[in-house]
Design a protein around this nucleic acid. Structure first.
Ligand SMILES: NC(=O)c1ccc[n+]([C@@H]2O[C@H](COP(=O)([O-])OP(=O)(O)OC[C@H]3O[C@@H](n4cnc5c(N)ncnc54)[C@H](O)[C@@H]3O)[C@@H](O)[C@H]2O)c1
Ligand SMILES: NC(=O)c1ccc[n+]([C@@H]2O[C@H](COP(=O)([O-])OP(=O)(O)OC[C@H]3O[C@@H](n4cnc5c(N)ncnc54)[C@H](O)[C@@H]3O)[C@@H](O)[C@H]2O)c1
Lengths: 211, 211
DNA sequence: AATTACTTGTGCAAACAATCACATAGCTGG
DNA sequence: CCAGCTATGTGATTGTTTGCACAAGTAATT
């Protein structure tokens, strides 16, 4: 299983497949063909088969894929057969929505620590149970609580400094909501969730179409 | 200007360039070379030049790009030289964060109408000024208010139905926050903002790295 | 056992995207 | 006005991703 040979787009699609399969499982669908799964996820059927083929042979020819089994395999591939411990930095409007979101917990992602600088916020307990730590406590808390993933929801101006703090505390993976490109050392990963870029894409398409 | 020949990744990067240039403008930087801009955005310098070359010659050889001028051109390309009118459907945790976010307005994106089904919410006025309409009023309000873009922040179970409503009301472009693939008729666009997919990517990389 | 119907897994070609490398053009200073 | 310097714009090249088309495997039916 060559890590480097797998398209990153494949990983993203695996995530979509996993979600679709989860849904099918709830609907008590036992078997699904690549056609149907592809349609549900908005991709080409051959793409589905090829994506899966990177990791093994999970289907039965002439039949399809067993939903439960395939879901299990995909989750294993993605590393979703365990829980992930996250730290959230910046409890503003967005941060509050994130910690309140119960879907994350269901998917195995848990905010086990939250940080802010605002003295009015530090020390308070959130409805979801976490106490807001001061950002200065980040290094110790991150180690104590065994954090895997850092989530940045601070203003853009503070995001790069926050990333550095997280890296120095030993966190290898960051989910960034601030609208800028975070610079990271080799071997560390950032994923950006970028609302404005998506809106700009829509604006571009609407503009082009009108021409 | 051949719409179809431009890589979609180029459009996404133009959005990043635009943001970086905006920042440089505030720092009173007048001229920037593709090297520097590329570094700021985490891409290859040749990539920057090629992306821009799709739309014209905006630089001066031996010098670089005039920040103000390039920003103007990129904004024109993306359609950011106007205001975009958006409707938000679903005023939950996430929806509230979105309407409260003042950056959108700065960038030219404005929530001019918001909808929900919850009778406790309908009729109330948000701190940002909008009155929450019942979803049944969507068709008329969308027409009255000349909405360009629909934003879905309902539970996943309601997202496809919401998309249909928006499409029927004449909206061509949708930003979807619900964790599922929305099916749209030909010629309509959806962009998904998908937190969990991003987290799954991080989980995968952390898992692989550990092997 | 042979036939039919079906769906996976995959070699290959085509489409798409990123990168290199350099000719080209503008600026500056003498 | 020429030489030297610099950074753009772009043809050529390399690399990556997608999609087609079909051989291979499975099940059901006769
Ligand atoms: N709200 C949205 O819908 C939205 C949309 C797109 C992007 N974003 C981005 O997400 C980020 C957060 O947005 P928001 O609306 O929640 O902003 P916000 O201003 O409501 O919250 C920011 C929070 O970060 C805290 N903070 C500031 N500096 C900090 C530091 N150094 N360490 C720790 N905490 C710090 C502040 O005290 C505040 O609580 C911003 O970068 C924003 O651009 C938000
Ligand atoms: N909160 C987050 O951080 C977060 C993160 C990732 C994804 N999401 C997704 O974003 C969506 C919204 O999340 P949330 O946390 O705000 O949920 P929420 O439950 O807080 O809010 C949903 C809102 O939608 C309204 N609603 C329900 N059906 C509707 C309909 N048919 N028409 C109009 N409004 C309707 C509800 O009344 C409620 O106000 C969900 O799909 C969620 O999975 C949220």
């Amino acid at each position: 299983m060559k890590f480097s040979k797998i398209p990153s787009a494949t990983i993203t699609r695996l995530s979509l497949y996993s979600r679709a399969l989860e849904e099918l499982l709830l609907e008590h669908v036992n078997i699904i063909a690549s056609d149907k799964l592809a349609q549900k996820c908005g991709v080409n059927p051959a793409q589905v088969r090829k994506d899966l083929a990177y990791f093994g042979e999970f289907g039965v020819r002439g039949v399809g894929y067993f939903v439960k089994e395939l879901l299990f395999e995909i989750k294993k591939i993605l590393g979703l057969n365990r829980r992930w411990r996250m730290a959230l930095v910046g409890i503003g409007n967005l941060g509050l929505a994130l910690v309140a979101h119960e879907n994350f917990v269901k998917q195995g992602y848990e905010f086990v620590a939250v940080f802010d600088v605002d003295p009015k916020k530090v020390g308070r307990r959130l409805p979801s149970g976490q106490i807001i730590h001061h950002i200065d406590e980040l290094p110790t808390v991150v180690k104590e609580k065994n954090i895997d993933i850092g989530v940045i929801a601070t203003p853009a101006s503070q995001a790069q400094a926050t990333a550095r703090l997280l890296v120095e505390a030993g966190i290898k993976a960051i989910l960034n909501f601030a609208p800028l490109q975070i610079q990271m050392p080799e071997g560390y990963i950032v994923e950006n969730v970028d609302f404005t870029v998506k809106l700009d894409n829509l604006a571009y398409h609407l503009t082009m179409e009108a021409v």
